[in-house]
């Protein structure tokens, strides 16, 4: 056989294999990508309709087109598609989910919020960066994988923004909260929810140093910004961002937080609470840093950090970030002889 013929035959065979190989070939990959794109757009549409239902202003073909960044014609076609699958009700003005559609929407939201919890707790990604990653991954997980993730995370009930996570049975709790922009001046409040969309506003909120569970009080407010007091320092927040921060009433005045990291060598404190979740919290608890424990700062490292703390007779080194997550009350009596 001619060498050139042999080479081109071999090349053709290789090309055919590359294209037609089951599961890994180009054709199979392309089909998979098509199916995924289809799933993504349907699930995103259901999410949007669900969000609008919760807000009380029903979704329309126009709002859906805007949300999904497609033309109105494509949106209408999509709506008739999912209507045909029985996922939305066909009656009345505005779009409403059918029970089946709601179940599917909640399943996607559940995957999204659990993924966000995972990205923050286990991978330590910054709060303002997780939304995009979770948005992509939520469509590729099976129900079993989502359930396994929930179990691995220890059945969290809220995502990192304070949103409740739907249960596997498909129930979603509602959070009683008021937007910070509507909160009266001078009334102590606790942050219970941070709205993560749009991400630009979330960046503003994180940049102002606000976090879930924080105690704050609005000191002043004008058209542009709010001045907030956290018991220790004053923070400024754009009014625009304040409508994305949700608070509930605090029964006592705002208290300044004392942190383990503020202890100097030789000083001691008693732990009040751990201000962290997930892996960090479990790790600290495992080391015996439970609320009520007496902790003494033993000595700093050569660079001032990390610091070694004496906890229940053991020496435990923590970085400043971990010390910041542990709220304490200073303990002034001599440590000697105490437990």
């Amino acid at each position: 056989m001619e060498p050139s013929l042999a080479i081109s035959l071999a090349a053709a065979a290789a090309l055919a294999l590359l294209t037609l190989w089951p599961r890994r070939g180009l054709l199979a990959r392309w089909r998979r990508a098509r199916r995924l794109a289809e799933r993504v757009i349907v699930e995103d549409a259901l999410k949007h309709i669900h969000a609008r239902e919760l807000r009380g202003t029903l979704a329309t073909p126009e709002s859906l087109a805007g949300k999904l960044d497609v033309g109105v014609r494509r949106a209408l076609q999509l709506i008739s598609d999912i209507q045909g699958r029985g996922l939305i009700q066909s009656t009345g003005p505005g779009l409403r989910l059918s029970p089946e559609g709601r179940k599917l929407a909640l399943r996607v939201i559940r995957a999204h919020r659990l993924l966000e919890r995972y990205l923050v707790d286990e991978l330590r990604m910054p709060l303002e960066a997780i939304h995009a990653t979770a948005d992509r991954r939520e469509h590729t997980m099976t129900v079993e994988e989502v359930d396994a993730l929930e179990a691995q995370l220890g059945y969290p009930q809220q995502d990192p923004h304070g949103d409740p996570i739907p249960t596997s049975a498909g129930t979603l709790e509602t959070v009683e909260a008021t937007a910070l922009s509507d909160w009266p001046i001078g009334m102590p409040a606790k942050i219970v929810h941070l709205e993560d969309e749009p991400p630009e506003v979330m960046t503003l909120i994180v940049g102002a140093g606000l976090a879930l569970g924080m105690q704050i009080e609005v000191r002043e407010s004008d058209e542009q910004r709010l001045a907030l007091w956290d018991g220790e320092s004053e923070r400024e927040l754009a009014r625009l961002a304040a409508s994305n921060v949700f608070v509930s009433e605090l029964p006592h005045p705002v208290q300044p937080p004392a942190r383990l990291s503020s202890l100097k060598p030789g000083e001691a404190g008693r732990i009040i609470a751990l201000r962290c979740e997930g892996l960090n919290r479990r790790r600290l608890l495992d080391l015996g840093l439970t609320p009520g424990t007496l902790v003494e700062c033993a000595f700093p490292g050569p660079a001032g950090e990390p610091r070694a703390y004496r906890v229940r007779g053991a020496l435990i080194a923590l970085r400043r970030e971990q010390g910041d997550e542990i709220e304490i009350e200073p303990f002034t009596v001599s440590v000697e002889g105490s437990q």
Partner: peptide, 14 residues
């Protein structure tokens, strides 16, 4: 491998 530093806890045994 972008991300924040995670928790660092280290026991210093006797």
């Amino acid at each position: 491998l972008k991300g924040e530093a995670s928790s660092f806890t280290l026991e210093l045994p006797p």
